[in-house]
Simulated scan of single mutants.
Amino acid sequence: VVIFFGDLATFEHVMGVLQCQSIERTPWHRFQFVIFVMGLFHLKMACADAIWRIFIEPKLLQEDTNSLMAHLALNHPWETGKIGTNPGFRRMHEVIVHDGLALRLNTWTTELQNRDLTTTSLHDYAETAPTQQQIKEISNRLARFYVAGGDVDIYALRSQSPQRRDTQNENVVFALNQGDIGRVETLFPLWISIFQGTGKHKYSAHMIKFLMDVHFVYPDRLRKAVGHNVLVNPTGLPGKFRGVDWVEESMINLYTKHTFGGSGSNYTKKRVIDESTLIKIHHSRHDNIEQNF
C-alpha cells in the first residue's frame, strides 16, 4: 500500500488515473495499492476560508458592533479593506488567532470582575498569586458558560458579549499542531456542517469519506498507518506538527515551482522537471551558506 496525500485537486487526478486503469487485469496495473488521504493543511486553509465566508463576507454582518469586522477595525485597522475582499490564508489565520486571544483575555477579565469588583485587570489578579487549582477552576467555568454549546440559542447569543461566542477554527489548529489526530476527527462533524452551509461541499464530502474509510473500511493495520502518518513533525519540537501536504507545498513545490523553477521565458515545464532533481543540492547549499557566512 502507498498512502498518497494531497489536496482535493490531487484527489481528482488520482481518481482519474484509477478509473482509467480500472480495466487492467492485475491489481498492480490497476493501481489498487494507492490509498489517497486528504491533506489536513489544505483542510485548515478551508476552515479559515469558511470563517471568512460566515463572519466577514456578508456586508450586512459587518455593521454589527460585535462582528469580526468590528474587531478587525481595532486589531488590524489598516487591513480591513484587504481582509474584507480577499485576505488569503495567512492573513485570515492571523486574524482568527489574534481575535481569539483578545476575546479569551476579555473573557477572563469579565469573569474575574464578576467575582471581585476590585479586580480591574488581569495584572491585578496575577498579583494575588492564584494557585493552579484556582486557575483551573476558572478555566473550567469559562469553558462551560462562555463557549457556545449544543443547547445554546445562537439568535439570543448575538445580543450578548462577543467573548461568549466561540470560533472552532482554533480548535482544529491546536489539535493539528499537537498532532492529536483523534481530536481532529472529533471536530469533523461540526466542520462538515459548516462546509455544507458555506458552499464547500467537496470538503464536506471528503471529510465524510475520510471518516468512513478510517473507521469502517480500512483494516486495522492500514487504519493505524493513516493515523500515524497523516501528521508529521519535521522539527521534532512540541506543538509543531504539520500536515503531510504542508511539507509537500513548502519543502517541495515551493522550491520546485517558484524558487528554482526559473522565471520569465525560462519558467517552463521542462525547466521545472530538469531542476527538480537538484532541489536537495540547492537546499543544502543555501543551508551551508546561512550557517557559515
Rank of each mutant, 00 (worst) to 15 (best):
V1F: 09
V1A: 08
V2W: 09
I3P: 02
F5P: 00
D7C: 09
T10D: 09
M15V: 11
V17F: 04
L18A: 07
L18T: 07
Q21W: 02
Q21E: 05
S22E: 03
S22W: 01
R25T: 10
P27S: 03
H29S: 14
H29G: 00
R30D: 06
F33A: 05
F33L: 02
V34S: 06
V37K: 03
F41S: 02
H42F: 04
C47S: 02
A48P: 00
D49K: 13
R53K: 05
I54V: 14
P58E: 00
N66G: 08
N66I: 05
L68Y: 09
L72W: 03
L74N: 02
N75V: 03
T80Q: 04
K82T: 06
R90L: 01
M92A: 04
M92E: 06
E94W: 05
E94G: 06
I96V: 01
I96K: 00
T107L: 12
T107W: 00
T107R: 10
T109E: 13
E111N: 13
L112I: 11
Q113H: 15
T118V: 09
T118L: 12
T118S: 15
T119S: 02
S121E: 12
L122I: 00
D124V: 03
A126E: 11
A126I: 02
T128K: 12
P130K: 01
Q134V: 08
Q134H: 15
K136T: 08
E137M: 10
S139R: 04
F145V: 13
F145Q: 14
Y146T: 07
A148N: 08
D151E: 13
D153V: 07
A156P: 00
R158K: 12
S159T: 11
S161T: 14
S161G: 07
P162T: 10
P162W: 03
Q163L: 03
R164M: 11
R164Y: 15
D166E: 11
N169H: 13
E170M: 12
A175L: 05
L176C: 08
N177A: 15
N177P: 00
N177D: 13
Q178C: 08
G179V: 03
R183P: 01
L187H: 07
F188M: 10
P189I: 14
P189Q: 12
L190I: 10
I192V: 14
G197D: 09
H201K: 13
A205N: 15
M207H: 03
F210C: 10
M212S: 10
H215R: 15
V217T: 15
Y218L: 11
A225P: 01
N229M: 08
V230Q: 03
G236K: 10
G236R: 06
L237W: 07
K240Q: 15
F241L: 09
W246R: 12
N253R: 07
Y255G: 03
T259V: 10
T259Y: 02
F260A: 05
G261H: 00
Y267L: 10
T268H: 00
T268L: 03
K269E: 05
K270G: 01
E275Q: 15
T277F: 04
H282D: 11
H283E: 13
R285A: 14
R285H: 12
R285Q: 14
D287Y: 12
D287T: 12
I289S: 08
F293V: 04
